[in-house]
């Protein structure tokens, strides 16, 4: 019985080990790497990815997938910038509208998936193109934000000794992270998400609100992607319709590398954070190296994702978690 329980944790343990090994490995090669400043930069540079990946964690835990994440980041980012700069809205107002739009699109996708029993990937793939189109429709050019109020948001930071500044976006990320852990582990909704991913048929027969949960998961992911878009806009001080290309893949990779099973039902929000950090380490390594080009990041992430997917397959085959594959017709 002990062995079986260990199996469940293998992906998460593997994730932590990979993160540690990578961090130390790169640290040994580049002495400047293991500084606190670089560590803080992991969070600053990847706050938006982390937030979106947390939304993705819930979706994948529920047994679904959301491919619209990257486009949603672009759309809400460009929308925020547009509303502030071109429409003269108050930044707070603009942010609220963006978050509302993201949640709404997520909600609609959830409804399409639930009520019409459509495959999540095709619905969210459509959402991906829809959002990208909307983003380009608003503006093809990057919209820089000069609004002083917004600038003051961006400049909000806690200064630590050693003149290390931790900007607001890092706190937003950490706040989302803590809230997500709370939701996942201490609310009925969170547990229903796990149950849905573990066995949607059982969840239905146990009387859980399957439909509501499923729709809420996509709405939540939409909301968090929109928040990621806002954070990205704060990070770059601009909204750009071509940002976030392929980001859905990075988000999925963070979740899967973080030990969440693609089939749903098993995983941890904390794992996703480590998954994001692993990608941050790889990216920083490539920057440190200087001779490697940025596209190596994509290849490396693809490779990591592949390895973890294969690891999951072997674990689930070994422990023979049989899950009903057919949908319920009642």
């Amino acid at each position: 019985m002990k062995i079986k329980i260990d199996r469940k944790y293998i992906p998460v343990i593997a994730t932590f080990l990979v993160a540690l090994l990578l961090y130390c490995g790169v640290g040994i090669r580049y002495p400047g790497f293991m500084t606190f400043r670089v560590f803080v930069n992991f969070f600053i540079d990847n706050a938006y990815l982390g937030i979106a990946a947390i939304g993705m964690t819930f979706v994948i835990l529920s047994g679904g997938i959301d491919l619209s994440v990257g486009s949603m980041v672009a759309f809400t980012g460009v929308l925020t910038a547009f509303l502030i700069e071109k429409q003269g809205l108050h930044p707070l107002m603009a942010i609220v509208i963006s978050l509302g739009c993201g949640s709404l699109i997520g909600y609609v996708m959830g409804c399409l998936i639930h009520y019409f029993k459509s495959a999540p990937f095709i619905v969210t793939l459509t959402g991906m193109f829809f959002c990208r189109g909307l983003a380009n429709l608003i503006s093809l050019e990057s919209i820089p934000i000069y609004n002083p109020v917004f600038k003051s948001f961006v400049r909000l930071a806690v200064e630590l000794p050693g003149r290390i500044k931790i900007p607001a976006i890092v706190f937003i990320f950490l706040l989302v992270f803590i809230a997500a852990i709370y939701i996942a582990h201490f609310t009925k909704f969170g547990r229903n998400v796990y149950a849905l991913g573990g066995s949607s048929q059982s969840a239905l027969l146990m009387g859980l609100p399957v439909g509501r949960t499923r729709i809420a998961v996509y709405a939540l992911s939409g909301f968090l992607s929109a928040l990621a878009g806002v954070v990205f806009t704060m990070y770059t001080s601009a909204g750009y319709g071509l940002s976030g290309l392929g980001m859905e893949m990075e988000a999925i990779a963070s979740v899967v590398i973080g030990g969440t099973l693609l089939t749903g039902g098993v995983g941890y929000v904390a794992g996703t954070l480590v998954g994001v950090l692993i990608q941050a380490i790889i990216q920083t390594f490539i920057t440190f190296d200087g001779t490697l080009s940025s596209w190596w990041t994509k290849i490396a992430i693809g490779l990591l994702l592949l390895i973890f997917i294969l690891l999951q397959r072997f674990i689930s085959q070994a422990s023979r978690i049989s899950k009903p594959t057919e949908t319920v017709n009642i």
Binding site: I65, L67, F121, G246, M249, E250, I252, L262, S293, S294, W295, W296, T297, K298, I299, I301, G302, L303, L305, L306, I309, L310, R313
Partner: peptide, 27 residues
């Protein structure tokens, strides 16, 4: 052979493949 969902299997190549293409042309 491995039983990965088609969407995920091809998603890996979708993103990694873009990187490979950039690698070939050096960006």
């Amino acid at each position: 052979a491995i039983g990965v969902q088609p969407i995920i299997a091809s998603l890996i190549l979708m993103v990694a493949g873009r990187g490979i293409a950039q690698l070939i042309t050096d960006g």
